[in-house]
Design a protein around this nucleic acid. Structure first.
Lengths: 147, 147
DNA sequence: GAATTCAATTGCATTTTGCAAGTGATACCG
DNA sequence: CGGTATCACTTGCAAAATGCAATTGAATTC
């Protein structure tokens, strides 16, 4: 059989479910900051060049936690600060983010440095492994609370 | 040097540019229908289970063409029908779509058949190659106009 | 040539977004 | 200590995007 009839599963389609969670202007941008740029606090996200509004940011952070993509804890060094970290589910969005970056780099004018993109293109799994390792190692990310 | 400082390129970030184009509830759903389910007409898209409104659909189809992701031509067999096809740029979104599907399948309840997902996970490039080949071969897709 | 199909468009109500200005809790500084 | 600054939000309101139903005009079928 050369082709299965690709028809049936449009209804409960993974793409649809994914877009209910990620399909908006800001959610993946927050995840980019968390996963690729080591940002972790509300302030960090607000300072990103895209200037997300604080009410939207608060809403998206809440939803990302409800979906189990991010988790948060109060900083032990400064009790005002809440640090957000990706869960495993969040880390597993790295391939999506990377493919999105590679596509954009191929077809649009971006300010991404050649070096970083070339590496992402050549060895995406290496980059993913490094990032996952960094998040697994508590010394490499913002100090965790007592929890 | 173990790590480059991953900081600089947040401003003109590929993720941001990608989300300006794709970052909404409907755009990737249309592309799913085009790329994965052989849909090509306005009516096809309207009949998708997510029930996109016709004004939104018209708007997104226009934008996808402006971004060079889809192209359209009038059917030669029925001049009312306008068929939409992906450009190369559009086809190159397949990896993004596939990673999105694999992530969703891993973490959410979907109605996607095991077989299709397993194949996407095992040999994504094979699937991509097949789909690209199908679009390259005019007999395999909706008849093209004289253009 | 009347009814139907297709790809939209229009008008309007509802929802979501963006912006500016707070708020309360904690931290820092003299 | 007391005052100011910082942090993570929240609130109120205007503007924009979305969803819905009805309509349009061209092309096709009956």
């Amino acid at each position: 059989m050369p082709e299965p009839q690709p028809q049936s599963w449009r209804s409960a389609c993974p793409v649809n479910i994914a877009l209910e969670i990620l399909g908006d202007r800001w959610t993946l941008l927050i995840l980019r900051d968390v996963l690729l740029f080591q940002r972790s606090t509300f302030k960090d996200f607000q300072e990103s060049p895209e200037k997300i509004a604080s009410n939207i940011l608060a809403d998206r952070l809440k939803k990302l936690q409800q979906h189990g993509i991010l988790e948060s804890h109060r900083s032990e060094s400064d009790a005002r600060v809440i640090a957000y970290r990706p869960t495993t589910k969040g880390l597993d969005l790295l391939p999506v983010l990377i493919e999105l970056i590679l596509w954009t780099d191929r077809y649009e004018e971006t300010g991404a440095p050649r070096r970083s993109i070339a590496r992402l293109r050549r060895a995406p799994h290496e980059v993913i492994a490094e990032i996952k390792a960094a998040f697994a190692d508590p010394t490499k990310v913002a100090k965790r609370s007592g929890k």
